[in-house]
Design a protein around this nucleic acid. Structure first.
Lengths: 257, 257
DNA sequence: TCTCAATACCAGTTATGACAAGATATATTT
DNA sequence: AAATATATCTTGTCATAACTGGTATTGAGA
């Protein structure tokens, strides 16, 4: 750990430049000057704020601005780290909708089309390994980025006893978070991805023309024991979204001919 | 019993990734590398924690996350065991073209459109991290299943010295196998997937109409050091192919918005 | 209203230690 | 030889405590 005490130039409050911007530049300078290599940890916030003589809100505003510009990454409970190329790599799992939104600096939102319990059809029952007719909760949403409709998400899962799903506002709530909090271990997701042409309903929801290409991803999410927990189908407007992920261990044995 | 003492890579605090997640990955790697067969026992916790230089809570958090993802099972008073008949393969690899063919009982084949060396353009050079103008081998193929054109594969990689690629018959040969045999270890592939409309050339090659939806997957394949080895773009006819893969959520509570 | 400060509190990450409880080999007793 | 006790492995659980960043509230001042 570097960054000596005296090395910090005092910030000027009479400058027209906001304090947090000055702080951000000061931190950037420190990183360069102290030659903090990529991946190394910064001093904790409580150290930095005394050193820079600013409040925590201001400091964090500076730090977040550096995250936004790709200089730093934060790790809850561990600290602030100088960004590495490794962290600009693609995620191991599929990048989630909100993660993508965060990366692009856009605001995610949802229109709820359907949020109700219904008896499981034969297909649904088979998919979720439950008895046909047993209660299944259906959630259909239009996902937006900065207000622009990007995808239609149709998910369903076996109804959770003792949980009043009708009280949840799915405009903002996260389905994954809901399932995790309900005690499900989301361990794996078998995924199928294909390109289709938008049908009438989809086109209307996404504000595109019928026949335009869309990217449909169907995921069956399972817990650690391989029991299906949730079926999720997300259909993206082809020209408004890209899936990004990272596959590992390509060349084990399998030749991709 | 495997897992030799020196075999464990030290965990680094110079990473924003929590120690317990690093530990979980390290153990997973050990299991795969040492080929600990299903049902075999892991070293006791007290061994592992000294070897990994972490505390017991941290180690147990890692172990539990692996139980959660179906890799391990624990037995009170006995030890930790590799899960019997691991639920599918945890490596998140795409089902390859030939694997898909085998699963469906179809015969894969290829038409070679282009197989030649050429100087790297600026874009190609940047992608592969080589000097512009350096020799790059280009391979373009139409992939067929039972004779039906399913995808167009456009790949290129830095030319391999001492290898006469012109002697290889890419109608049957596997590009991945070629790269592996040439000494590259294909460790990761950063992938971007999107739905597009077929342009004229693509439509002609695939025997579909212009504007029909196609699934385009671009992969930058890297070796263990993160150096790019090969760029591959496969464009599938939307109604003739589906990508299938499996994502695992190791130590995840991340909300998907 | 915006910036900034001060404060309190929540949540995630590690470490340390002590003790309970299941499993098993070994010594001891019957 | 068989049954029993015991020592010693193992994992399971709990509490404590010290860090870390994340969030919310309140209020002062321009």
């Amino acid at each position: 750990m570097v960054m000596k005490d005296g090395a910090v130039a005092p910030l000027q409050s009479d400058s027209p430049e906001p304090l947090w911007q000055q702080a951000a530049r000061a931190i950037t300078r420190e990183i360069a000057a102290a030659k903090l290599s990529s991946g190394s940890r910064l001093p904790p916030e409580r150290d930095l704020l005394t050193r820079l003589s600013i409040s925590r809100v201001t400091l964090r505003k500076a730090l977040h601005s550096l995250v936004n510009s790709g200089v730093l990454v934060s790790s809850h409970g561990r600290g602030w780290y100088v960004a590495t190329e490794a962290h600009q790599e693609f995620p191991q799992t599929l990048e989630s909708f909100s993660e993508t939104a965060a990366r692009l600096g856009l605001v995610p939102s949802s229109d709820v089309l359907r949020a109700q319990e219904a008896p499981a059809t034969l297909d649904e029952a088979e998919e979720l390994s439950v008895a046909p007719g047993s209660p299944v909760f259906h959630l259909e949403r239009i996902r937006r980025l900065d207000g622009v409709p990007v995808a239609v998400d149709i998910s369903y899962f076996s109804a959770i006893r003792g949980l009043d799903v009708s009280a949840i506002d799915f405009k903002t709530a996260s389905l994954f978070r809901l399932l995790i909090d309900a005690g499900f271990d989301l361990a794996r997701a078998d995924s199928t991805i294909e390109a289709r042409a938008a049908d009438f309903t989809l086109a209307r929801h996404l504000g595109i023309e019928v026949g335009m290409p869309v990217l449909a991803m169907w995921q069956l999410i399972e817990d650690g024991n391989g029991r299906p927990v949730c079926s999720s189908t997300i259909t993206y407007a082809g020209d408004r979204y890209r899936l990004r992920t990272s596959f590992s261990r390509i060349g084990k044995n399998t030749a991709q001919g």
